[in-house]
Simulated scan of single mutants.
Amino acid sequence: MRLLIVTDIHGRPSADHCLSRRLPGVQQSLARTVSVSELLGVDYRGERLHRELVENEGFIRASERLVGLAAFADVALGYSAGGTVLWHSVLHGLTVDRLICISSTRLREVNSSMMPKPTLAVFGENDPNRPPDCWARGEAVQSYTVPAAAHDFYAFEGQALKLCLPRIAGFLDLE
């Protein structure tokens, strides 16, 4: 399984903490990880990078660059802003079989029915910026809310990760 990973605005998670490491049948040797800052060609993270994404059409610029960098992935996995970049990349021509967006709260601003690829969007229940439950209305889009989880649950070991892994494995037919 070829896996394309796009990290969040802080460069998280590290390769050692990526959810893909906990999924059966996923070979890390076939994974490629790209940071949002790398896609924008900048050397900053955090709030400054977030502003670049939101205020300067950074999501679109990053997604167009990613389309040019990545030929194909069986699965694209994005964290927070990285998931939003992947979403736009698929709409701009990135070829993937499946898309997983973890805590990609900016997706609340997009029409989920436009997504042509099977997509799983995972959000923390305690994330105040997650889309409403009715957001995932597209035929290809599934949404899962992790109980009692914050926005950045993916960056820490804990119960939230344990709760979402079976859902992701099922989405990928790895169970």
Score class of each variant (00 low, 15 high):
93 G>W: 02
160 A>W: 07
170 G>Y: 04
62 A>N: 08
167 R>S: 01
151 H>P: 15
151 H>Y: 14
69 L>V: 11
166 P>H: 00
84 T>S: 08
20 S>I: 14
151 H>G: 10
2 R>W: 08
38 E>W: 07
125 E>W: 12
146 V>W: 02
145 T>R: 00
171 F>E: 01
163 L>P: 00
73 A>Q: 05
67 V>P: 14
119 T>A: 09
71 A>L: 00
16 D>P: 11
76 A>V: 11
165 L>V: 15
56 N>T: 13
124 G>F: 05
161 L>G: 14
68 G>M: 03
78 G>Q: 06
61 R>P: 15
140 A>I: 11
155 A>K: 12
131 P>Q: 01
155 A>Q: 14
57 E>P: 02
130 R>E: 04
122 V>G: 04
145 T>K: 00
31 A>M: 14
9 I>R: 09
7 T>I: 03
83 G>E: 03
44 Y>A: 00
78 G>H: 07
161 L>D: 02
65 R>W: 02
116 P>K: 09
90 V>F: 03
117 K>F: 08
66 L>F: 04
69 L>I: 08
73 A>S: 14
64 E>N: 13
134 C>L: 13
36 V>P: 05
52 E>S: 12
134 C>G: 02
173 D>Y: 04
57 E>C: 07
34 V>R: 06
85 V>I: 08
63 S>C: 09
156 F>S: 14
134 C>T: 14
137 R>M: 10
134 C>M: 09
101 C>T: 14
142 Q>L: 11
171 F>M: 04
72 F>A: 04
98 R>E: 12
58 G>A: 03
2 R>P: 12
24 P>Y: 07
96 V>C: 01
152 D>C: 08
21 R>D: 12
98 R>K: 13
93 G>E: 09
